[in-house]
Amino acid sequence: MKLFRRKTQGAQAETFRRFEGTDTYITSQALQDAVNVSLALERPLLLRGEPGTGKTLLSHAIAEGLGMDLITWFVKSTTQAAEGLYVYDTVARLHDSRFGDKDVDDINQYIKLGPLGRAFKAPSQVVLLIDEIDKADIEFPNDLLNELDNMTFTIAETGEEVTALHRPMVVITSNNEKELPDAFLRRCVFHYIEFPDPELMREIVAVHHPGLEKRVVDQCLETFYRLRDVSGLRKRPSTSELVDWIAALIHSGVDVSRLGKEIPFLGALLKQEQDINKVAGGGR
């Protein structure tokens, strides 16, 4: 991470931080640029891509690379937008009114901030990951528009206005196209994480398995990409599966020169039974 100082048109200096990947997370130039646009323009970064291309991991890498804390909001089908701001624990307050020795007049102690609320109140800038936003109700993104735009909301029970001390770097991942409203999309910086080409994959493998012989990596990658090209697979193997598979190969001491003929630990690469049968049966 470096600090850059640049002249803007108004001859007024602006500083922003740049993300350049981390030791364990290798990015493409395009992804770095997208992250930096999002950082500099304070727009949410919307990520799409095949499963296993590291959409979720990216936010960890940004947090690590820029030395920020990471707050994650895992969206589920029942998640409401309001939960991201705060939850008012009525039951605890009622309970305390009867049994507790706390002062129930102080509503604040029953207000539990959600991920968005915590990100706003954080003393320094944080990375906020809203993971799999498309899982929630169709109106979910719309309900968050205002909060993400103005970075402020009001707690109805106390009248307190929560305003972001530092605009969080918002990273949103989505698996489903066509689900997000236009008004929401207009505000986002979009990046589609492509599946890594063999060259980038070589770097990624090198990060996880340093010191692996080039010959071995070549052989593994060749098998891996050949497997990905098999048509009609239900779930094509992705980066994380490749890394696990190579780990399994190393630990078991399999002779990689045999890879051309058979694929050991096929289950590490393919997770669906039909896929395994397809490759094991029709491969040779």
Binding site: Q9, Q29, V37, R186, F190
Partner: peptide, 24 residues
Amino acid sequence: SLGLHDSSFTSFYNIARSILCKTE
């Protein structure tokens, strides 16, 4: 104007794409 593109044509392309395209 913030100089995000770093005077690089490739970065300019990346930046323009990330802002102007909303789906792959």
